[in-house]
Amino acid sequence: MGRYSIYWEDVEPGQQLPAFTYELSLLRLVAFVRASGLYDYVHFDGDYARMAGARDAFISTPHVAGLFGRLLTDWSGPEGEIRSLTFSMRTQSCTNDMLEVTGRVGRRYRGEDGAYLVDLVDLNIAHAVAAEAASATATMALPSRSGEKARPLNAAGSVQTDGSATDLPDFAQPFLGQSRQAGGLPAQPLTKEEIQLWCEALEDWNPLYWDEAYAASSRHGGVIAPPTSMFFGAGSAAKLGIGYLKPGEHIPDAVRQGLTGIPLLQSLRQSLVQGGTLVSPPGYPEIAVVRAASRFFIPLKPGDTARVELRMKSCSQKKTTKLGEGYFITTERLLYNQRAELVRTQEFTVFHYQV
C-alpha cells in the first residue's frame, strides 16, 4: 500500500475498488489466531469444525472484518477514515479457499457534521464454493481538495439505550436491558509487535499501522491499530486448554474431570461462548456469527488497554437452519480504552445452535 490518499472530489459513484485475492491457507488461519489471540477451535482445527457442521476450519469474524478493512484503506490510502462497517457472513470460507475481495463506490455526499463522506457498497468475499461468502457496506470519510482532513466519527451520543424487544424466550427475559463487563481487548498494554502480527496475517500494509516515521507525521502522531482489529493477547488461550498450568491460573473444570478429545474441546469452548455474549441458551453449545455492524471512533495505540461492556439487544424464538436448531442473539459490545474513551461499538448477531 502506498502513502497516496484519494480525495473526495475525485471519487465517482460506481468506481470499482482495487480487488485482491487472498489464499485462506491453514498457515494464514493459524497466523491470524496467533495475531488476534482468538483461539477458537473452529478457526484452525478441521476435525472440530467438521464436528460442528462446517466443511473445514473456517475464517473468523474479525478475520473477515480485517479483509474488508484492508480493501477499504488499500483504496482510500492512509488518510481515509473508516467510520462504519456492516457485514453478513452468508456461508463459511474454509481452509485453502482462494478468496477474492471486491467492492465499489456507492454515493458521495457531505455528512451532517460537514465531513466528506463516501458509501462503499457491494463489498464481497467470494471463492469457488460461494459467489457471496460475505457481503458488506461501509462509510468512509476522505480528505478534501479544500484542505480539510478526513473527519473521524464523533462518539458523542453514540451509545444508545436498549430497545423494547418483545417475544423473548423465557431464558432470555432476565437479560434484556442488562449489561456486564467482559474481558478487555487488549487486557495488557497493546504492543507494536502485536499490530505487526495482525498486518502480516492480513497482508495489510497501511503505513499508519507499521511505519513509525510516517505515522509520527500523521494526524495520529504515531502508529495505530487497524480499526477492525481485535487483540485478546497473552493468556487468552488458558480457558481453551493452553497455558492453564501457569502458577495461579484457573484450571478448567473439563481438564480436572479428565476429559479428552472432542468432548474436552466442546466443554472448554463454552467459556469462549459465555465470554462473548450476555446469555447462552442452555443446551446449544455451538456458535456462528451471521452479522456484524461496527462504528469506529478513535484508534487503539501501542500502550493502550481496553475494557468491553456487553448488552443484549434481542433474542429470537427457536429457529431451524442448515447448521441446526437454535437461537439468534444480538449483543452490543462497547469497547473503551483506559481513558474511558469510546473506541468502537460492535453489534453481533450470533446463532447459538446444536448439531
Rank of each mutant, 00 (worst) to 15 (best):
L67Y: 06
L67H: 05
A57G: 15
I59P: 06
I59E: 07
V64R: 11
T73P: 07
G53T: 07
A54N: 09
R55H: 03
A52C: 09
R55K: 12
S76H: 02
D74I: 03
Y48V: 12
L72C: 14
R55Q: 07
D47V: 15
A52G: 06
T61L: 13
H63T: 01
R55W: 00
G53N: 08
A52Y: 00
L72H: 08
F68H: 01
W75L: 05
A52I: 01
D56I: 04
W75E: 01
R70A: 03
I59T: 08
G66D: 07
H63L: 09
G53K: 12
A57Q: 15
G66N: 08
F58L: 09
P62Q: 00
G69D: 05
L71G: 00
L71I: 08
A65H: 11
R50K: 15
I59C: 15
R50G: 09
D56K: 09
G53P: 03
G66R: 05
H63G: 01
T61M: 11
F44T: 03
F58H: 15
V64Y: 13
S76L: 04
Y48Q: 08
D47T: 12
T61E: 14
Y48K: 09
T73K: 05
W75V: 04
D56E: 14
H43Y: 14
M51C: 10
T73W: 05
S76V: 06
R70I: 03
A49P: 12
D74N: 11
M51P: 00
F44N: 03
A57V: 15
F58K: 06
P62G: 10
F58D: 02
D74C: 06
A65G: 15
G46N: 13
H43L: 05
G69K: 02
D45Y: 13
R55A: 02
M51D: 14
M51W: 12
D45H: 15
P62L: 07
H43I: 14
D74G: 01
H63C: 09
D74E: 12
R50Y: 10
D56S: 09
D45P: 04
F58R: 08
R55D: 04
T73C: 03
